[in-house]
Amino acid sequence: MITIQVQHLTKTYRHGPTAANDVTFDVEAGEVFGLLGPNGAGKTTVIGMLTGQIKPSSGQAVIAGHNVVSERNELKGQIGVVFEHQNLYERLSGRENLLFFAALVRASPSRADELLEQFGLHDRDRDAVNKYSRGMKQRLLLARAMLDDPPILFLDEPTSGLDPHIAQEVHDLIRRLRDEGKTILLATHYMEEASKLCQRVAILNRGKIIEIESPHRLMVENGRRALQIEIREGDTIRSIELPMAQAADEVQRLLREGRIVTMHSIEASLQEVFIKLTGEGSAR
């Protein structure tokens, strides 16, 4: 079942560039869908339009059966948003932050306590947020987005600027939400993150979608197809790379000679895919 349906969505600012240009995609219920592109590609604008913060110039989007422009209030009950910035009330405690937003989304105070427990923040829930680490703040942002248990989550660069181990922590939380059946739209400029978490990704460049596919398929179709083989040469071990087309004969020969130590296929990284599709090298 399609939960997010986006058709020809365009946003042109009065004195600025076209931030999103004819963006079209669908997201299935329970899917983690990635919006992948470098900074300034238009990811935040697309999320802004889908969450009712930015009015589209043209096109339309329907989320959980609600038009994002004409049925904005009905839409708000269906979505949770984690913003790119850690927009929390720093002088208030983690619990006070959640209690405030719980009041706004009509969730019970006990739901706030439940989420603090669930996201591992209950030990520090009375501390001011300005004493939290970046990872704790990110967990609190995810907990805030979950207050009214929305079926759809928008995550805008959820690991941007985080240390690798904290990013891993956030990835685990996103996987947990995916396993709970949430539909997640994840905007990121990290190729590795998208390939780890998303079933499909839309590659966005300069406001336009240039490809929508599963990360694996993108890598297979757009990457180099080759084998990497470690071979023995006397007392040393050397690594060679063979294009798939010429690999069969060469591998048989090396097997006969008993020189193969290890052998595996080389998969293109999403970065290589991005560069191939856009002809630009700005993605990480």
Binding site: Q53, N73, V81, F83, H85, N87, L88, Y89, F101
Partner: peptide, 12 residues
Amino acid sequence: KKTLDAILVTMT
């Protein structure tokens, strides 16, 4: 601090 954005995506 962009907290207004967070309020505006609720029903408020």
